[in-house]
Design a protein around this nucleic acid. Structure first.
Length: 357
RNA sequence: UGGGGCGUAGCCAAGCGGUAAGGCACGGGACUUUGGAUCCUGCAUGCGGAGGUUCGAAUCCUCCCGCCCCAG
């Protein structure tokens, strides 16, 4: 029995099972490795190098302090091709991408799982706050929220497939951040006091707008700022500098605050309005990945999360095709933003999720 | 120097006798594996200057300074 180790077929894992653990150099992944090691598994640390000057030396230090082997794998090329390009293109088209969501599915877990076979391991583990379980009645692996509601990261994992989930372990799924920190300092892990990571990992401190400005092929053209009626009321610095719901940086004085309500790439225009104009009754999602179903029901009442840092709200999810769905909120929501992910929950189960059109 | 208008924080701007709205910009904090999103918070002992009226004036009166418009 390994209660703290959450994942598929945990009960059948015998001590000595070889598990690949992604080590980022942060607290969470360190503790994930620590837990698995203390449970008697054969732990191999892997750090994906997604970007030059990344990661810090911490990853190797953590692995050393845990006395586990450590591999550094260079994935800078696929990361560049699939994530950075996507990131830049989305902005170019007036959408607001969430690169972390795509990276988890297309880079992080894909390469870890590929490596798993190469290194003769049975499972892949990360320090995410989420859980995986196998639902025998459906014959499917389910992704669930982490027990610590304030740290739950299931949102950024909603694009994982059944194949991915079948070999993923989330050792922190039942723990709170506090317990994780305690475990880290108790074990003398060098990064125990490290603060939460933030911002886009590959930008490491630099402003994403500076990054976009300096990016080759990126076209940043100033254009008109229009009001709801279509009247020209100002000039913007380039679509990538704005996101729906934004109010800072518009620079137009007035009696009421103005917010970006829409980005119209075809006219290279930013549309602004008042806060009430940000409300939407629903949305349409594309690229939907269903986890809880192979073919979803036509109509589901679910919890809906329209951005990483958003409260889940109730509503209807109406699948339109295998990868498209319409969502109707019980009450209108603020700043539905194209490009961001929308994730559907049935209590703590991630039913699926897609990208807002 | 005939007529009219205006001077309120770095900027836009409300107030029109009762003790300085709001917005832009800026600052601080919280949150955070996306996004200057969200959340909390700071920001004019003073309203061009000097007098006066009044219990009390940015608001009324007088003079001065500086802009703008129309006409000559």
């Amino acid at each position: 029995m390994h209660d703290s180790v959450n994942g598929p077929d945990v009960r059948h894992m015998s001590p000595g099972t070889r598990i690949l653990v992604a080590i980022s150099g942060g607290v969470d992944s360190s503790v994930a490795a620590l837990i698995l090691k203390s449970e008697g598994f054969q732990v191999i640390g892997v750090t994906l190098k997604i970007w030059e000057a990344f990661p810090s030396k911490d990853a190797k230090a953590v692995a050393d302090s845990l006395s586990i082997p450590h591999h550094m794998v260079d994935v800078t090329e696929p990361f560049q091709n699939e994530i950075v390009e996507y990131f830049v293109n989305e902005y170019r088209q007036g959408r607001t991408p969430n690169p972390c969501v795509l990276c988890n599915a297309k880079i992080k877990f894909r390469y870890l799982i590929a490596l798993k076979a190469e290194l003769g391991a049975e499972y892949v583990a990360t320090g995410h706050y989420a859980r995986v379980s196998f639902e025998s009645s459906k014959g499917r692996f389910l992704l669930r929220k982490g027990r610590d509601a304030t740290k739950d990261q299931s949102y950024v994992l909603h694009r994982l497939t059944q194949h991915d989930l079948s070999s993923i372990l989330f050792p922190l799924g039942n723990l709170t951040k506090e317990q994780v920190r305690d475990a880290a300092s108790g074990a003398g892990i060098p990064v125990a006091d490290k603060s939460e990571s933030q911002e886009i990992c590959f930008l490491a401190g630099t402003d994403y707008r500076d990054f976009l400005s300096g990016y080759e092929n990126q076209v940043i053209e100033p254009g008109p700022i229009l009001d709801a009626a279509g009247c020209l009321i100002g000039k913007h610095k380039g679509l990538p500098f704005y996101t729906v719901g934004q109010r800072k940086g518009i620079g137009i004085p007035g009696s009421k605050r103005l917010y970006v309500t829409k980005i119209d790439a075809s006219r290279n225009a930013i549309i602004v309005g008042e806060e009430a104009d940000l409300l939407s009754d629903g949305l349409e999602a594309g690229d939907v990945n269903w986890i809880a179903y192979s073919t979803p029901p036509h109509r589901m009442r679910l919890g809906i999360k329209i951005r990483y840092n958003a409260k889940e709200v109730p509503g209807l999810v109406l699948p339109k095709s295998q990868d498209m769905a319409e969502v109707v909120f019980d009450t209108p929501q603020r700043a539905v933003t194209p490009g961001q992910s929308v994730v559907f929950y049935d209590n703590d189960i991630v039913v699926g999720g897609g990208i807002i059109v």
